[in-house]
Design a protein around this nucleic acid. Sequence first.
DNA 1: CACATAATTGGCAGCGCTGCCAATTATTGC
DNA 2: GCAATAATTGGCAGCGCTGCCAATTATGTG
Lengths: 336, 336
Amino acid sequence: MNQDDDHKHRNEVTLRDVSAAVGLGMSTISRVLRNHGSFSKATRDRVMKAVDELGYVPNRIAGALASSGSNLVGIVIPSLHNIVFPDLLSGAAVALNPIGFQTVIAVTDYDIEQEQKVIQSMLAWRPAAFLVTGLEHTGRTRSMLKNSGVRVAELLDTDGEGIDLVVGFSQREAGAVSARHLLERGYRRIGYIGPQFSFDPRARKRFEGFSQVLAEAGIEPAETELIGRTSSTEAGRAALERMLARNSNLDAVYFSNDDFAVGGLFHCFAKGIAVPSRLAIMGYNGLDIGRFAPQPLTTLLTPRTEIGEIGARMVMEGGDPQVVDLPFEILEGATT
Amino acid sequence: MNQDDDHKHRNEVTLRDVSAAVGLGMSTISRVLRNHGSFSKATRDRVMKAVDELGYVPNRIAGALASSGSNLVGIVIPSLHNIVFPDLLSGAAVALNPIGFQTVIAVTDYDIEQEQKVIQSMLAWRPAAFLVTGLEHTGRTRSMLKNSGVRVAELLDTDGEGIDLVVGFSQREAGAVSARHLLERGYRRIGYIGPQFSFDPRARKRFEGFSQVLAEAGIEPAETELIGRTSSTEAGRAALERMLARNSNLDAVYFSNDDFAVGGLFHCFAKGIAVPSRLAIMGYNGLDIGRFAPQPLTTLLTPRTEIGEIGARMVMEGGDPQVVDLPFEILEGATT
DNA sequence: CACATAATTGGCAGCGCTGCCAATTATTGC
DNA sequence: GCAATAATTGGCAGCGCTGCCAATTATGTG
């Protein structure tokens, strides 16, 4: 009556079907497919042939349950609209793909409550490791992560207490280096444009490092503009316009990222403000768009792809918790 | 002797532990946690309390195996370095997160063999749906996808045969519209700069649509520069420089994306080439960076975020295979 | 050629959860 | 107050695979 085979759910091909087709035990098929344990060459060929003919696709859900281990790596980033994070993902992919791991990606929109939620639901898949952004998390996120027994790498920032592995650089120091760069060139009336600190702790730390160096030289940021949660050319352009309207006496502006900075640079081009003689501009991140602008942007190149790659590699390798500090570098352009 | 509890693997808290702690059957706990089936308010509270105290995290691997259904959605994109794809992901996230689905993301590097590999390994996790880019796949990818019974949405391009759901717009028509825009403004000696067609079928289709409209007007692209697999300001800048060195007689250049176009625009700024009077520039995608350039770039705004969102929503809703064509729009800047 | 050793292979329990259905308890109608 | 109905709850099989170990077969040794 029933034209289906005697399978339960759908007509899915299982290990058992392959086993029956080849006439070997399920364990043998499993060993061949995972290339683990011993089996003869002939067996291997027969199994592969049957797998191909039947169109068998191993069910990793069952595999993971039986072996209590998945090949999933959870990656949590605040946004996809800042190229830094896609770069981080690319770096991680370079380390993970060759060893057969897959990435489950979640975006938090710079909200640590949201981060807690997504980490909790990722944890339900028992990932092999977590790559998260920054060191700022809710207490519950920390404890979930610690209790889970899953290895964690916190990326990008080394200024603070990590949970396990930390790979990045000092955001404070990056800000400090930028301040020194401007001071060395004689700028003294310096503005700052960046995202609202409430949602980007790394930008805040850079600003703190920046301000501290200025303070040591006896000066403080002359003007500050904080931008809502976007990182766009438009926002940078508008912010610089507002800032100059308030105070046209500035000699330099430090932007918290290159998107903003390029927007600022565009504003100067459009208004005929001479850069850097009338106003110097400095960015952060070393984006392509700034480096190849008509007037190359002075910025600070961050090793974000390497951070992703090294973070992923080290977290998979195991080893003791540690902090890995990677170098960044000032790119001298023509805007300072 | 053994200070561990009598658990097998690690000290993981399971449903059984919660069940024991609350003094209710496992099925009841499971029903409460999934908010499915019936249970009393009092039971609910007791269960939640115990879950909290024990730090129980449901194991979705086991859940998915038992119920044959995961909350994972596989997303396959060619690259992360072109903002189009992060935008697609953001759109998909908007549709998927609220309904509790998680995204497993793989990058193919514009290689359909690589795409086949990643889809095969994603299939092992029995995702609830697939979102893939474009209509060009290996035959094996197609058949795997069809046989899997998993719903598939192919995004961005509607010029061709889909597997199931297709959400995007006609790449050919986008190219054609751009050509008409340039012709209407009187440009006749037109160059084209874009990625090598071998790895970007959508760029090829746009170029075909573009060339066809030119052909109907009795002209053909005066110059063509194809760039390796990168989409950067630098590459666009260098390509325009090479093209103008070969042929300084052009009156317009159509760039296959805004990153290249902005590079071209930068080249013109740097060399003092008047835009558009001496050379017109047109881009594609409607990126922020072009829209807010000192001289706003004329480009074509693509609905990529909507494509991600609508594609994800529709593929999850079920329904018959269909093609959804979304509108794009010319953004008139000051470069044509 | 008998025996030790190595290489293959099979059987079975169980990973942690859900679906189904039966059992139990609470509520309602007359 | 008792049967009938609805609301809760529990038991158990089994999702598809892997780990362990025993069974079988092939290979080597003196």
